[in-house]
Every structure is written in C-alpha cells, then in structure tokens.
C-alpha cells in the first residue's frame, strides 16, 4: 500500500491541560505512514489522552497535531478552533476503536457498520449494506450481521467496532486500549484482527497494555509517563534494552504481574 492510502502524523510540542492539571507535556512524536506505533506506559500517563488528541476528541492547548501536514482541530494560523465542518472532514479518514467498543445498541452489527457509510459518506442503503457485510466478513463475523450488540461476546463486539471503523477506509486507525475490557480468552481474536490490518499497511496508533503484542506488531513503541514522552524507539530497544530507568521499572512490574 502506498502512502496515498496511509496518513502520517506529526506531533510537535503538544501540551494539554485539564484545568490546572498538565496532562500532556511538550510531546514530540512522528508517526510514519503505513507503520504501527504502540503507546505504552502506566495508567494515568496520558497515552489515551495523546491518542484522543490525534482526532481532536480531546482538545489540546499547545503545539500541534498534523495529519499529512494539516493541523487538526485548530486553525494553522492564529490557533483558533477550526470549523466543525472541516474537523468532520478530517475525521472521516481517521478510524477509532474504543476500549468500551461503543457500539450502538439499537442497531444490528450490520447497521452499526453501515450507519456512517450512509450518513457520512452518502452511500445508498444497499451499497452501504453490501460494504458493511464485506467488512464484517473480513473480521470473521459474516454470520453475525443481523445480531444486536447485546447478543455478541465482548470480542465479537470489538471486532464489529473495528469493522465499523475500517469500512470507512480510513488512512489512519487509532486504537484506545482495544482489549482492556475483554475477558482474557477473547483478547486473542481481537489482536489477530488488528495484526491482519497492520499487515495491510495502514497507519496505526495503538494504546495497549499487551506488551507481547506491542513487541511483535509495532514498528515503534512510545513510552509515556506522567504526561511526558520518555522514549520512542523500535520495540527491540524498548523491551530488551530500555535506556530509561522508568521504562525498566514499568516493565518489571509488568513481568511481575504476569508471573505465576
């Protein structure tokens, strides 16, 4: 896949405040097109907040997030908020998958996927339905198209959510702890789907606590702590030979937790 179908993201001097709380401090991060970037770090470190700044679900106050050279959320000049319409246009090519799936409970799996195709892309209902079924087949749910979310397992729901985002043919996919709300035995099926998507050359940013997954799939791993980007490096370096004591400490608690 060429970079025409995959976005690059450039985060420069990003700062984010919740009232007086400094949630993100001077973050500089390059996310190359077609690559997988995993964000790791202790809870409360700001990794989800950083991810949510990329599609401006979270507003930031300093610096900029540029997607293919275009600042999202704010006007490039003057720093005023960009028009809602422009923001919606930019979001069309950014898919997002949430920890809590956020499927719409009053719609079937197929309707969940087709909804934005009709409402945002303006496809006909028939065309949207066809695309929705194809997207669901791709995540292994071809037999669940008519099921409502409450009839699906957590893993299946998350795969529907992935299909909903992917059906829009985004150039960038954001995953916010996609397996954290799942029973352990259901994590694998979701990670497999994400891994398959990664191999297609889509740009992906994944907030995760699955270190094994990050080590295998990521092209680069960014470690955050207390709102700061401590390090961004290839997974081998972060996991095998961490330069910073904070990363070492984090990985040690992670290993300790997973021993039995």
């Amino acid at each position: 896949m060429t970079s025409e179908n995959a976005s690059s993201v450039e985060i420069t001097a990003l700062g984010k405040y919740y009232n007086n709380f400094h949630a993100l401090k001077n973050i500089n991060l390059s996310i190359p097109a077609g690559k997988v970037t995993c964000l790791i770090g202790p809870s409360g470190s700001g990794k989800s907040t950083l991810l949510r700044c990329i599609n401006f679900l979270e507003e930031y106050q300093e610096g900029a997030v540029e997607i293919d050279g275009q600042v999202i959320g704010l006007e490039a000049v003057g720093g005023r908020k960009m028009s809602a319409r422009r923001l919606r246009e930019m979001r069309r090519s950014i898919g997002m998958v949430f920890q809590q799936f956020n499927l719409w409970p009053h719609m079937t799996a197929q309707q969940n996927v087709a909804e934005a195709l009709v409402q945002v892309q303006g496809l006909s209902k028939a065309e949207a339905a066809r695309k929705a079924v194809a997207a669901l087949e791709k995540v292994g749910l071809g037999d669940k198209t008519e099921s409502f979310p409450n009839r699906l397992s957590g893993g299946q729901q998350q795969r529907v959510a992935i299909a909903r985002a992917v059906a829009m043919e985004p150039k960038l996919m954001l995953f916010d702890e996609p397996t954290s709300a799942l029973d352990p035995e259901l994590v694998g099926e979701v990670l497999t789907v994400i891994k398959d998507l990664a191999s297609e050359g889509m740009t992906m940013v994944i907030v995760t606590h699955e270190m094994g997954f990050a080590a295998h799939v990521a092209d680069q791993v960014a470690f955050l702590e207390a709102g700061e980007l401590v390090s961004c490096a290839p997974p081998a370096e972060i996991f095998r030979n961490p330069s910073d004591a904070r990363i070492k400490a984090f990985l040690e608690t992670y290993h300790a937790r997973n021993q039995f």
Partner: peptide
C-alpha cells in the same frame, strides 16, 4: 453513555445526525 456520541463524532457524523440516529 458519552461514548455513544463520541463514536459517531469520531466517524465524522454531523451533530444533528448524532442526535437523530
């Protein structure tokens, strides 16, 4: 839940559509 509207907004849906649908 707030995530319901958020998921729709992330897909680029218009606020009016989010209310209605």
């Amino acid at each position: 839940p707030h995530g319901q509207a958020e998921a729709a907004a992330a897909l680029g849906m218009h606020p009016f559509t989010i209310w209605k649908r």
